[in-house]
């Protein structure tokens, strides 16, 4: 029953500004944005660490085996401010010592004495890589095919619809696993597997939107001016349907991350790097011996980012596309 539509906004405000205004009013969305920002920082830090050790040709700490420090619980459980060796210290010394202890393996170590926090951060880096690269594969395919199908219609449309409905038929995870198997184990398989299946939904949405926009007066006007088809599609129509891309990206990012975790867990994903899936896979057996923190850290890391992206995606959809609003 919301009679207000995008068109009736005050002219000074673009769709994006309006969306941002609406988004900012939602506390939850802002919290999610902050969480996503934190993860992004962690991923960038992870990237720096990775390259630093790679360029210096050293074993990075997240891979360094140190059997002396095997299975250390998180630092806050090791009573950092108490303990035997602190007995004769002054309170300030004890405090400083405690702080230092707190910073030493804050999330504990795994079975080979590797720092869990560092590994979680590396997992974030890999998750971001997967999310970004798969999007870079899927978004161009989806956008281009969707635009072409929607704009030209006819045979082109038939073909593209046939193509994506065929892709859509093939069970997702299995298809991804098959692609990864054919391409070979490793990150490339993950990228291609997820990327080549993820464009379908986007293509369908974009096609629908473009069909709607094709009849709008601004397109007719552009055509009357004699602009070329591709200019009309990519300069005039695409900016108006771009919010679909943003929303899809936000909702697909966590999906890509989750799939990578499953693939790595199954052993056909990331090889030799601490991805979250590998961490869970390793930690699964140690869980039986009561080593829960590695499992907990990886699980919590996945849960946090996926939840933040899901909530953010919902909020973005509400803010950017009033017609798609679900509940109130």
């Amino acid at each position: 029953m919301n009679t207000e539509s995008v068109e009736s906004l005050p002219e000074s405000m673009t769709l994006w500004q309006d969306a941002w205004r609406r988004l900012r009013r939602r506390r939850l969305a802002m919290v999610c944005l902050a969480v996503v920002g934190l993860y992004t920082l962690a991923a960038m830090y992870g990237e720096c660490v990775y390259w630093w050790y790679r360029l210096h040709d050293e074993t990075p700490p997240y891979k360094r085996v140190n059997l002396a420090e095997q299975y250390q619980p998180p630092s806050f459980l090791r009573s950092p401010f108490g303990g035997r060796e602190t007995g004769r210290m002054s309170s300030l010394e004890r405090f400083l010592h405690g702080l230092k202890a707190l910073g030493h393996h804050p999330l504990g170590t795994d079975g080979l004495g590797r720092d869990v926090l560092q590994r979680v951060i590396q997992g974030t880096r890999i998750a971001y890589q997967v999310g970004i690269v798969t999007s870079l594969i899927a978004i161009p395919i989806g956008v281009v095919l969707g635009c072409l199908a929607g704009y030209f219609g006819g045979r082109v449309d038939d073909f593209i619809v046939w193509l994506y409905s065929t892709f859509a038929c093939i069970p997702g995870l299995l298809f991804i696993l098959a692609i990864a198997m054919v391409v070979g184990k490793g990150l490339l398989g993950v990228y291609l597997g997820i990327g080549l299946t993820m464009w379908v939904g986007l293509c369908r949405l974009i096609r629908g939107e473009v069909i709607k926009h094709k009849e709008r007066p601004y397109v007719t006007a552009a055509r009357a001016l004699g602009l070329g088809h591709f200019r009309i599609i990519f300069r005039h129509i695409l900016p108006n349907v771009f919010h679909v891309v943003i929303v899809t990206f936000t909702l697909r990012f966590p999906y890509a991350i989750g799939t990578e975790v499953i693939m790595s867990f199954l052993g056909i994903g990331v090889q030799g790097e601490p991805s979250w899936g590998i961490m869970i896979s390793n930690a699964r057996l140690r869980l039986w011996h009561g080593v829960w923190w590695e499992m907990a850290a990886a699980t919590a890391a996945i849960f946090g980012i996926v939840l933040a992206f899901n909530l953010l995606g919902d909020a973005l959809r509400d803010a950017l596309d009033p017609r798609l609003r679900t509940g109130r």
Binding site: P254, V261, I280, T299, I302, F303, V306, L307, N310
Partner: peptide, 13 residues
């Protein structure tokens, strides 16, 4: 949404 955000693997494990 919280349920959705928990990975399948985590449920299994």
């Amino acid at each position: 949404v919280a349920l959705m955000s928990i990975n399948y693997l985590v449920w299994i494990v």
